[in-house]
Design a protein around this nucleic acid. Sequence first.
DNA 1: ACAAAAGTGTTACCGTTACACCCATGC
DNA 2: GCATGGGTGTAACGGTAACACTTTTGT
Lengths: 235, 235
Amino acid sequence: MLKELADFKVGVDNVIFSVDGQLNRLFVLLVKRPKDPYQAYWSLPGTLVRKGESLETAAYRILSEKIRVSNLYLEQLYTFGGPARDPRESSDSYAVRYLSVSYFALLRYEDAKLIDNHSGLTTWYNLEKIPELAFDHREILNYGYRRLRNKLEYSPIAFEVLPEVFTLNDLYQLYCTILGENFSDYSNFRSRLLKFGFLADTGTKIYKGIGRPATLYRFDSQAFAPLKDRPLVFI
Amino acid sequence: MLKELADFKVGVDNVIFSVDGQLNRLFVLLVKRPKDPYQAYWSLPGTLVRKGESLETAAYRILSEKIRVSNLYLEQLYTFGGPARDPRESSDSYAVRYLSVSYFALLRYEDAKLIDNHSGLTTWYNLEKIPELAFDHREILNYGYRRLRNKLEYSPIAFEVLPEVFTLNDLYQLYCTILGENFSDYSNFRSRLLKFGFLADTGTKIYKGIGRPATLYRFDSQAFAPLKDRPLVFI
DNA sequence: ACAAAAGTGTTACCGTTACACCCATGC
DNA sequence: GCATGGGTGTAACGGTAACACTTTTGT
């Protein structure tokens, strides 16, 4: 029996979530495949890794080809690498294998501008209404969605997604949209977050028409440092 | 500028932890590299993925080449794939790239038998006394150790590592060894675990010499099912 | 009887939950 | 004045932490 090593091309597939805090919608970015395999199917935006390019660089490259955005969070998700996950691998198992390293990203819908959305080949899909996807992308998406919710509860990723200054309501809306309404009472969420001490009052207030003006806060990474690695819960 | 795709060989590196509940020791399995690069350095046991082989299969293959053990937990950790992480990649960046998909495994020291430990090229190293490692393996190890502690707190992985029936003390020792003494009072740990309701009293008791005999429990996956995906905490 | 190991119980404390309530603004 | 959105306060509840205590065994 031969023990030959497999040869791989490595792809990076991104699960890019965008949160619309205003209208409480959670989207994922899908692209329509222009060619076989899975021609005309929707899929996660992906690319193959080039010579001299790191995995993360490749992930950022796809993202920046599709979206212009200032604040985002991105991390590696999982690596899917079974043989025959890509039909391009011929069944005699002597062809090149395609391995997919997936990443997940989070950004705000209102801050993101789609590049080339005239063609309609790149679209935000509501998470509730995902069509059938190419390859094992549905599985990757599910995995990413689970990770997103976990990360939000236990890590300060929200502050990498929000702009420099933000209101506690902006933050709350972000959480609501992802974790679902009533994940926590607003007033309790508020006091918990403020008690941590890493949200600095900027002194300025923002007036958005009717109603009391909201205080603008800034994430103070100095003050957050000691809490790093400890089990935070933003419930 | 050329946009040529990189060609990869894919390696799997395992961070294999073993817990010695009796003597409160936590080990990681290291192997001495027989050849360049990093000849004679200690490293995580790894292998390159063969044709027709899945990543997970490769991970189990290395493991079973080194250890005979009945119960273990294994999961994918992270994929390290920057260019030049392996010196075999020549600097002109036109050579084959080496990507490492890492896995972490947990098993019990007392249940594991090392295969071929005469040569001394495969050894359990105490986590406190890790030597300099080859490649980026120190980084992988640190990552694995963090994951191990998290998993133990939030997932029922302990029950995949313990034998079919076990005492609450076996379980407690496992937790103590990994999370550190005083991670929780024994009596509190005990009542929390029993309250969950997924530990079934087998009715039998085990007599280990002096002292009151211990009740043997079995993990009841039926009873655990409804708790799945919910945020458990075994603190 | 005593030491060792297993198992039970109790209490003070602290954080969460679910509200009700007060404040500042535009119309 | 009143609707609207922002912000504060509080009291009941439930779980945790720390520790003392009881039970069952071997010698």
